[in-house]
Amino acid sequence: MTLALVVAAAMFVGILAYALFGGADFGSGFYDLTAGGSRGGAALRTQIDHSIGPVWEANHVWLVYVLVIWWTAFPTAFAATMNTLIIPMLLALLGIVLRGASFVFRKYAATLAQARVFGIVFAGSSLITPFFLGAVVGAIASGRVPIEGRGDLIGSWVTPTSIIGGVVAVGTCSFLAGVFLVADAARAGSVDLEHRLRRTTIGVGVATGMIVLGALVPLRDDAPTLVEGLQGRAAPLVVVSALAGLGTLLLLGGRRYAAARVTAVVAVAAVVAGWGVGQYPWMLVDELRIEEAAGASATLEALLVVVGLAGVLVLPSLAYLYRLTQTEPWAHSSH
């Protein structure tokens, strides 16, 4: 493995972590949006606040980590992507800003009317971000980011691959969020909530799964390089994802929530990893390989020091945070 590849892998780990943890936080916006009126939706919204409140800022930093490694290690690829995909990038960013701000504003709002406004912004913007980030992935994976000059500002991402990417991102985020929320509701002993969430989550899961599988057909024309990878090198991951997704649905049906959380994470991780493996060795598909994109090797080495430090400092802290949120005193929303 070359230095560039190691750094790219470290960056991809960040993408995976953001997709899983950040994704679950964003996905909870879907349930918030569909929770119903203020009275009927109160229990669910409280559960959402309780589940993502302690973790969303930490989960969000994965994105910062990815961006920073990207522009430091692969500056030309980053510049090219930003140049062509500026619009979906900015819309994703808008979602990030509105989501984060309105989430805390709602939590501390003075009146129900205020809280409702912030709540709508929170829930709506939670869906914007995964959609447009998915569209960005679609544009890169279908070879629409040129290294010289600027690709079409709109046409580069209003394509079948990008739309599918966006929809799949929203679907997988919502599915993950649903599985986590059901488990939290069950642990907190909210039976009604548990039933409601379980039903919606299974629906979201079935829909997303069908889109992912059905997507392979239009992708074949629109993103041939990616599809070739998905059917070749990445095929095992696609299979794992399908099986884990199916397993999650069954486990949800049987109320085995702890196990369902694991399989749901595996299913989504496999989808994301499938994309990465599928487009290897390209950084920008059909345009720029990972090796060619790499910056100065002194910088790549230095970045590995940062990655190593992250392993020593950040991962144990994160583990502690997640473990705390799963302990008994944290299960109940007496906050």
């Binding site: 930490a58 930093v61 910062v64 980590y65 920073v68 490694i69 522009w71 430091t72 290690a73 500056p75 980053f78 510049a79 910056g295 100065a296 910088t299 230095a302 970045l303 940062v306 430090l309 992250a310 400092l313 950040v314 802290s317 994160l318």
Partner: peptide
């Protein structure tokens, strides 16, 4: 200069994590 001055940004990301 992205690869000259990116390193402190990466360390900064680390600090924000913590």
């Amino acid at each position: 200069f992205g690869d000259v001055i990116g390193l402190p940004f990466a360390f900064e990301g680390l600090s924000f994590f913590i």
